[in-house]
Every structure is written in structure tokens, then in C-alpha cells.
Design a protein around this nucleic acid. Structure first.
Length: 486
RNA sequence: GAGGGCGUAGCUCAGCUGGUAGAGCAACGGCCUUUUAAGCCGUUGGUCCUGGGUUCGAGUCCCAGCGCCCUCACCA
């Protein structure tokens, strides 16, 4: 039985009728394996206008259809781009019945001879059309594409071919992640995978998602960070490791936040946060060089200059510069906080300082800026500065007023780490609903001795946003979270 | 979670201070062998997001709900 019913709309019914007619021609409307296909861009690249004997076989979706009677021009799209097919009745008399049943949106293969039209358009003068998949739904309008934002996210499978810039952006993301992997592997980093389901969600201050394992009858948390497992690998003797994978945080959505997002974390034994700074600068500049046009990129209203060297400024100096007060001067900081409308009275000193930082400094950090040396109390997993123990050897990288990376000289003293965890748990309040657990096994690992190390976390989605000009994180995630319909 | 905006044909969009639903693309029929969002002639197509209410009359006004977007909050 079919799922067809009276509710099926007229446009769909017309296409179903064509599908039936294709079957009557003894042709499978859903095709089969097709070997030796060339991409549209590969065919464009190989075409030699001095030759008349070149052939090509392409496969893709019909996105434009121009029927001139005994001649039909089709624009076929694959992930590499488009190529024009010329279907002449003279050449394709035996297949003309099938050709008259083709619709916009159908997936077909076409084989023929390459040539140029009068107007110089590269064309496959087709000698054989291969039906690969019938499209029984009406595709979006050919010129505007799919514009409805909600539909674009819900039906990304249409968005990707209806709006070529969407395919291009995701291809860029894919290429950038590949560049990152190659870059790190060439430096001798091991790419590893650590648990996404954890019995303790640690390594960050965030609300986790909870799930349940039936056989063991235990609750598990989707990880909020891979940090504590990657450091265990340092203890295990892997000196250089990285992981690119999803983190999950049970928080609100925004143009910069998706509940699952891709984080890359890198750990390097015998290094420190200065080495991580150099590494991140080198890596992101490589991405700009390989995947972007020029070193100054437009992002929304901002023009961001990625040329090296990037600014490195201390947290304290930046607060002085943009808030006009010294973070050591708590009275001044509190009065500044009040003037910014921050309810500072019930907050700890260091939290107030950070509120002031976020309210005054962040929005000014347009060009890549390393904010270095954070107040130590904000950094429970970070080693303190030897020269001034009030500060931790930590930096955050800001680009386009957005935090894209966070790095430390990793704390490797098990006793200090233990004390930090305990005081952090004490400091957390109930309505915060943030899970803070003491990971005793992690402390145990540190007791075996973790080499001094630098660690770096990079928000891949945000980096891709910046480098592809996407102002919403949903535009760099293939299937962003949306509420289910109805 | 709070505030603001949006939801009309398969798609992209009009629709004024309330008067009975429109265009382009797509589709269908016709013409056309070098088009480029092909063109020309003709035709079809609507639970105006859902449910209430006000009104002689609601796409339009009011209330509630659903979804999306923006801003804010939590955070990366």
C-alpha cells in the first residue's frame, strides 16, 4: 500500500503521475549505482576548448529547466557547482518520452560530449540521460531559493541545494576542520576520542543534560567538556593530544549558542599558555590564509583584521582601558559596576570584576585579542603565575567581540586542584543549578603526576562563523536544535 | 524565562483606516534547436499558523495557544 491519500496536493499528484509514467516506460525512477561520475567543477576544469572529442558523465539535481521545444537546457547541480546539459531531440529521440517527464528537482545523470554554446556556456551535449531519483515535491522558487529561515533549518536537505551559498559555507567548514586536523597531526598531536557520556560532568561550569543507562541502571551526563579526560591522557603518557567533538550544555539558545556545539581541545605536555597562544594564532591565521579572501574579513558591521601579530593585553590593563578602573581597587570596581546597572551587592569581588569586564571590555575586542592573566579565583583549573599568584596563567581569545578560545597553563598539583574543587563546590549555590562535582579519579590521576602542560579550547562553530561571515551559529551547524513542530 | 517582531498559493512576496484573496516563479495546455531567473499566449492553484471573541462583515481589530527571528538573562 502507498501512503498516498486524498490530502496529497495537486502539484504532488502531478509528479506522482509522472513517476507512474516513468515506471510504464520500464525505467526505475529511483535509479541505481552509477560509476565514473565527474563533478561539475572537475568537468569545467578539464574542458579544453580546442578539442571536440571530450566526453563527460555528471550526476546531480535539476535546478533550472529551459525547454525550447526540440532543445532543452538543464542546469544540473552537484556539491561542486553547476553544469549545463544540452538535450537535443535529434540526439535523444529514443529517450524523449522520459525527458518530457523530467521535473525541476529530479536527480539525473547525463553523459555526452563537451562543447560551448553560442554564448560560450560549457555544455554537456547529452547522448544519454539516466534517471536516478524522482523528486515528488515541488522545489523552492528557482531565483530566491528557500528564504524562510525556519524551513531552511528544518529542511536543510532542501536548503543545501536550493541555496548554493549554504553548501559553500558548509564545504568551508569541512575544509577548515580538515586543515586543523592536518595542522595538528603534522605537529605530532594524537587525535583522540574521550567519553561523551560521563558519570560526572566536569571540566567546566555548566548545566549538563542527563540521560540514563538501563543495563547499569545509572544516570549519565552528556559531557560539558572533555578536559578532565584529555588530561588523564597526559598522565597516561600521551604528550600531545587533541579532540574535536561535541559538548552539550543545558542552556538557552541564542545566535551564538546551540545546546550541542563543537569544541576542540588541545593539550601539550611540557608547554604553557604562551605556547598555546602562539599555536592558536598560527592555526587560525593558517585557516584565514587557506580558506578566506585576504586578511581583513567583514563580519556583520565589523571589519576584522587577522594580520599578525595579534594584540596581547592583560585582563587588568583592559579593564583599566575600557572601564577606567583598577581591578585591585574593589571600591572603584563596585561603583563602576553599580553605574553599569550590575547588582553587585550580593556578588563576590572577583565576580563583580568579571561582570565589569564583560560589560565594558568584551564589545571592544574586534580584532583578534588575547586577554591574558585572569584573576586566579576565576580559574580553578589553571596554574597561578609564579611572579604574581593573584593571577592565573590563562588567556581567552576574543575575535569580533566573541570569545572563541580559552587556554591555560594547566594546574598539575593534585593538592591545589583538590582544594580548588572543594572551594568551588562550597561556592556554588542551589538556584544556580550548575552541577559541580568532585572528580576524585581525576585527582587520583594527578597524584601519579601530570606533566606541566598547556591546554587550549577552541569553539569551532564560532570560529567558522567568523571566518565565513555567519552571524548566527545556526548557519554553521547543519542541523541546529529547533523545537519539534506541533 | 522576559520584552519586541513575524506567520497569506508548492516557493518568494503584496494586501491602506475592517467590505468577501493578488503578483512573480513553479505547475498544466500550446508555440519555439543555442537558452542563462529563456521568451510569448492561455489555464489552474488558498483551513490567510491554530482556537476563541468583537462586528452586518475579520487576512486586517481583541484574547489565548503554537512556531520562527531579534534583544536580554544563563553560558562558549
Amino acid at each position: 500500500m502507498t501512503e498516498q491519500n486524498q490530502d496529497i496536493d495537486k502539484l504532488q499528484q502531478q509528479r506522482q503521475d509522472k513517476l507512474a509514467k516513468i515506471k510504464q516506460l520500464s525505467i526505475d525512477p529511483y535509479g541505481s549505482r552509477l560509476d565514473d561520475i565527474e563533478s561539475a567543477s572537475a568537468v569545467r576544469a578539464k574542458f579544453d576548448s580546442t578539442r571536440q572529442d571530450q566526453t563527460a558523465l555528471c550526476a546531480g539535481r535539476i535546478v533550472l529547466f529551459r525547454d525550447i521545444g526540440k532543445l532543452i537546457f538543464i542546469t544540473l547541480r552537484d556539491s561542486s557547482g553547476t553544469i549545463q546539459l544540452g538535450l537535443s531531440r535529434k540526439l535523444l529521440e529514443s529517450q524523449w518520452d522520459l525527458i518530457k517527464l523530467l521535473d525541476l528537482g529530479d536527480v539525473i545523470g547525463a553523459e555526452g560530449t563537451l562543447g560551448l554554446t553560442k554564448t560560450g556556456e560549457l555544455t554537456i551535449w547529452t547522448t544519454k540521460v539516466i534517471m536516478l531519483s524522482k523528486c515528488v515535491l515541488q522545489p523552492p522558487e528557482k531565483f530566491h531559493g528557500l528564504a524562510d529561515i525556519e524551513l531552511r533549518y528544518r529542511q536543510r536537505y532542501v536548503d543545501l541545494w536550493a541555496n548554493p551559498e549554504v553548501m559553500d559555507r558548509f564545504k568551508k567548514r569541512i575544509a577548515m576542520v580538515a586543515t586543523i586536523r592536518n595542522f595538528l597531526q603534522a605537529k605530532g598531536f594524537f587525535e583522540v576520542e574521550t567519553p561523551m557520556m560521563q558519570s560526572l560532568a566536569g571540566g567546566a561550569a555548566a548545566k549538563p543534560f542527563i540521560t540514563h543507562h538501563n543495563a547499569l541502571d545509572i544516570d549519565l551526563y552528556l559531557r560539558i567538556a572533555p578536559e578532565l579526560f584529555l588530561k588523564r591522557l597526559l598522565v597516561g603518557g600521551m604528550e600531545k593530544v587533541f579532540e574535536v567533538n561535541r559538548n552539550f550544555r543545558n542552556e538557552g539558545l541564542s545566535p551564538r549558542h546551540n545546546p550541542e556545539f563543537t569544541m576542540m581541545e588541545i593539550y601539550q605536555a611540557y608547554a604553557d599558555y604562551n605556547i598555546m597562544m602562539d599555536l592558536s594564532e598560527e592555526m587560525i591565521c593558517l585557516l584565514v590564509e587557506k580558506h578566506c579572501e585576504g586578511t581583513t574579513l567583514q563580519y556583520g558591521e565589523m571589519r576584522i583584521d587577522y594580520s599578525r601579530p595579534w594584540r596581547r593585553a592583560s585582563y587588568r590593563d583592559l579593564v583599566k582601558e575600557y572601564a577606567g578602573c583598577d581591578i585591585q581597587d574593589i571600591a572603584a570596581i563596585r561603583s563602576k559596576a553599580k553605574s553599569l546597572g550590575i547588582e553587585e551587592a550580593k556578588l563576590d569581588d572577583d565576580i563583580v570584576v568579571n561582570e565589569v569586564f564583560e560589560a565594558t571590555v568584551e564589545k571592544n575586542l574586534i580584532n583578534p585579542t588575547f586577554v591574558i592573566d585572569y584573576p586566579a579565583r576565576l580559574c580553578p583549573l589553571t596554574k597561578r603565575s609564579k611572579t604574581n599568584p593573584d593571577y592565573a596563567e590563562r588567556f581567552e581569545l576574543y575575535i569580533g567581540a566573541m570569545e572563541v578560545a580559552n587556554a591555560y597553563t594547566e594546574l598539575n598539583d593534585p593538592q591545589v586542584q583538590y582544594d580548588n574543587f572543594v572551594s568551588q563546590i562550597k561556592g556554588s549555590n542551589e538556584d544556580e543549578n550548575t552541577f559541580r562535582n568532585l572528580d576524585e579519579d581525576f585527582i587520583n590521576a594527578l597524584k601519579y603526576g601530570m606533566p606541566p602542560a598547556g591546554g587550549l579550547g577552541v569553539g569551532i562553530d564560532r570560529l567558522v562563523m567568523l571566518l565565513t561571515g555567519a552571524t548566527s551559529i545556526k548557519d554553521v551547524i547543519l542541523f541546529p536544535l529547533l523545537k519539534p513542530e506541533k
